[in-house]
Amino acid sequence: MVDSLSLKPEAAAPAHAPAVKRGRGRPQPPRGSLRSRREAWAAHLFLVPWFLGLFLITIGPIVASLYLSFTDYSLLDEAKWVGLDNYVTLFTEDPRFWTSLKVTTIYVVVSVPLQLGFALGLALLLDRGLRGLSFYRSIYYLPSLLGGSVAIAILWRKIFGADGLVNAVLAIFGIQGTSYVNNPDTALGTLILLHVWTFGAPMVIFLAGLRQIPGSYYEAASIDGAGTLQQFKSITLPLLTPIIFFNLVLEVIKSFQSFTQSFIVSNGTGGPTDSTLFYTLYLYTKGFKDYEMGYASALAWVLVIIIAGLTGVNFLASKYWVFYGDSK
């Protein structure tokens, strides 16, 4: 009985059946056939705006920044070719590079799963079956609207500052707290919470993804007597994997580049004592405050390699857990 239950949703939803082989949906027309030529032609037409953008405004700056990473460039005068110097300095003589890498890695590793878990949990809770859901959805989305606002520094101090909300609550229990935003041991923690707090974006994406799951699958499953948990495990979760995957990939990329929140909350310093020195904040400081844009570009390309590597791993791993509706 249990076995047949867990199989049932698949029977009801043949399209999503976990594919062993991630092939394309239909037999491929032979290369060079009329049909494949027509398809390629159409594909390029659909991509015209993107190609235009790529060559007109995207690729140039990227190539330029790669070139600049091999130069000594102050922004205010000419760039001078220095070969690998920037990269060598970065790896051998720059403790702040390692600090920023460490801070950022901790931030990504802790806050991304937390934020996604949170967003997914709330999305499930807010998906259906309760009155006033659109109200809750809106309320929960509000923090994300504030996340990058200049006011956030003040608001955050109102919660985690010496006289903030957290300490006010602790004081009831006779505990005297510190200023969490400005204590080197806790400052990063508050920024992680800030990141989790703005879970609205992935939540919305999850919500949209949940709505892509045809209700008929659930109907079929519940006729077969599958419980809520069973349905979640064999319908919701597998069908949501492309969206989970999307959020994971993008959150990793975005969190590694996280800048605004630390910039605003720490007044652009990454302090106290570099405890919130995010990688891109350090890069920004080097480029625009220290007038070392060549060095900043080298920092940027090291980050690109890290992010690209992780994204590559993500894509490879996705073969084992992401199920697409278009595969057979």
Binding site: A153, I154, R157, G161, A162, T178, S179, V181, N182, N183, S266, N267, T269, G271, P272
Partner: peptide, 13 residues
């Protein structure tokens, strides 16, 4: 003066 963490907070504010 206040302690270091609080002082840092005030300075940043």
């Amino acid at each position: 003066s206040p302690d270091a963490a609080k002082m840092a907070e005030i300075a940043a504010a």
